[in-house]
Design a protein around this nucleic acid. Structure first.
Lengths: 342, 342
DNA sequence: ACCCATTTTGCATACGTATGAAAGGCATTG
DNA sequence: CAATGCCTTTCATACGTATGCAAAATGGGT
């Protein structure tokens, strides 16, 4: 009922050694003699002693906590990130303190302040962007920051992303090669770099084939808004024959509208492509052609960046861009036919 | 670049007051005069001072950290839990330290040890179960534990669950009322209380109508294993005409197999029902009849239990069971027809 | 102007640990 | 046997904050 906090002093007393000896026993990289080590081990075991990480942090200046800011887990790309990142950091002896930022995301600065209050050793921003003022403060405090799946102008911030622009271009080339000429685009949240880069690449790919966007709507990365966007895009008589939706999550919404509200067949009437390759993309109900973001690889680079910055102090920012692989599935028509579709 | 840690002493010096005054200014419930408050505010602002939560914890014995253990975020019920729980706790000034336990889950004890090292004020177990030995240790340390969406024999553990048994029974009654007589069941991980309770309720519901399970397979809460289970269940010539899948996540897998591998129509050939009401359940591609677990309600009760235990010390364990609502959708046939289907 | 009640302030200490410096132990070497 | 060196151990202190206690200051009432 009451708390029976066991401290290193209790262990020391029972083992008949000093508190420092106990501390040394539990600190990797230090040495104690076989004899006292055994005494300490036994005493610690008997009392159920484990070092207090918080008190340790106070001395070492390292909390072994990484702050993770993420906006919405509704897009199933992020749960995967949370899981993999958390596991990868656990393997390094770190743990993840989660902060959910409202999508409004104007409170990201406030949230990041709260994170800093915990003396985290690093921060991963997997959602909205932070003010460069705050970035400066983190830099001043020596807390490394890694942007995950987004970029920001501030040159001092490290970032890990996929090649969104290249991915967008690949998708454009694919649709063009399949004979599509009326390609629509459903955008994510306009403030996001992923959105901008994917759209830019897609437009470039179309232009290379002498085409321009046939239609464009905004879905803000939300399922419901993407549904509405799809309804608007297909309201007129001149419909697109292919749609690139800025991420898989919204692509599911678009496919659902096309099939179940408008009675269109995918891919026979309209091809749909997405971005991310979240698990449902390979479920037969959607079977979505998309660009795979290699989460494991992204996580590994993120952890490596963090560990390096923590150990050696943050040198110059690392900006890592990983290639995404085109995954061909059933939401795009098969190659063969290549003529006009009108 | 180097870290310029600002402490309460720095602020005190600049403001021309004592360190205690600064501490008091930042501690709710204490009082300082208008005049010094203003001096401190100004000095703190100038230096960018914020109290060190970790140092504070050392004194107060409260870290304002809640440990959350979760096994797999692949089932989209849990991302929702993480998001809502984290938000709700943020509102209370607490934050969530995430621990991912392998599904093997024999390392839950080890993980919980790591959690305790962080001096957490409470623990939420949203996945596997812990040994009662460890539960005893937590109890001894005065760290409250809440089981989320699962039960365990140990009477000292608080738990928040839905009425899984009642939900299972409701689904049985629904299927029976729709005229189904050959009801199959696809189980989750056998060690989970949710699995056991849902199956028990389902069987009871069938028995009340003089029926027994027509078929049973195990999917272990995994998409792929659920697919395999569905294939086995529908391999013979005597097929079920309805299936209760222990959670939505697996139900999607089952529907995909039925429709896209076996060419069966849902609900015309087979009715499918699930449990949880995760977001994809209401997407038109699945449109799944299910039992809704009210995550917000569950989270609220979890937070309330934690806060009470933290404040007043854990009294007797609270075991809260919330009703789940039946959500009728298109994966079950419409009422009308009530006769034999054979 | 004085006194008492109340609020505000500072001093000192404690929380649980890590770590540099000093002291002790032991064996090896000349 | 004394001297030297290395490995262990202890001592003392620091990390950044909260808080009981005593001292000081404030304010109100007569």
């Amino acid at each position: 009922m009451a708390n029976e906090k066991v401290t290193s002093n209790d262990v020391a007393r029972l083992a008949g050694v000093s508190q420092s000896a106990v501390s040394r026993y539990f600190t990797p990289g230090t040495s104690v003699s076989k004899k006292t080590a055994e005494k300490i081990r036994a005493a610690a075991e008997e009392l159920g002693y484990r070092p207090n990480v918080l008190a340790r942090s106070l001395i070492t200046g390292r909390s072994r906590i990484i702050g993770l800011v993420v906006a919405y887990l509704e897009n199933y790309f992020y749960p995967e990130v949370v899981e993999r990142l958390s596991k990868a950091l656990q393997d390094q002896g770190y743990h993840v303190l989660v902060f959910i930022s409202s999508i409004a995301s104007e409170n990201v600065d406030q949230i990041t302040q709260e994170i800093l209050d915990y003396q985290v050793d690093g921060i991963v921003l997997a959602s909205a962007n932070m003010s460069s003022e705050l970035a400066a403060r983190c830099h001043a405090s020596g807390v490394p920051i890694v942007l995950f799946n987004r970029l920001q102008d501030d040159e001092r911030l490290s970032a890990v992303t996929s090649d969104n622009r290249g991915g967008g271009r690949q998708l454009a080339e694919l649709l063009v090669s399949l004979g599509h000429r009326r390609c629509g685009y459903i955008a994510g949240f306009e403030g996001a770099s992923t959105q901008r880069d994917r759209e830019k690449g897609f437009r470039e790919g179309l232009e290379a084939a002498g085409l321009a966007l046939f239609a464009r709507e905004v879905g803000n990365f939300r399922y419901e808004e993407a549904q509405a966007a799809a309804r608007r895009m297909f309201a007129g008589s001149e419909r697109p024959d292919a749609v690139f939706v800025c991420n898989d999550h919204m692509a599911f919404a678009v496919m659902d509208v096309l099939r179940f509200e408008l009675g269109l067949r995918v891919p026979d009437d309209v091809s749909v492509v997405g971005f991310d390759d979240v698990p449902p993309a390979r479920w037969p109900a959607y079977d979505l052609t998309t660009i795979r973001q290699n989460v494991d690889h992204m996580v590994a680079e993120t952890v490596a960046t963090l560990m390096q910055s923590i150990k050696e102090g943050e040198g110059t920012a690392r900006r890592i861009t990983l290639d995404g692989a085109l995954v061909l599935r059933g939401s795009t028509r098969a190659k063969a036919q290549t003529g006009e579709t009108r």
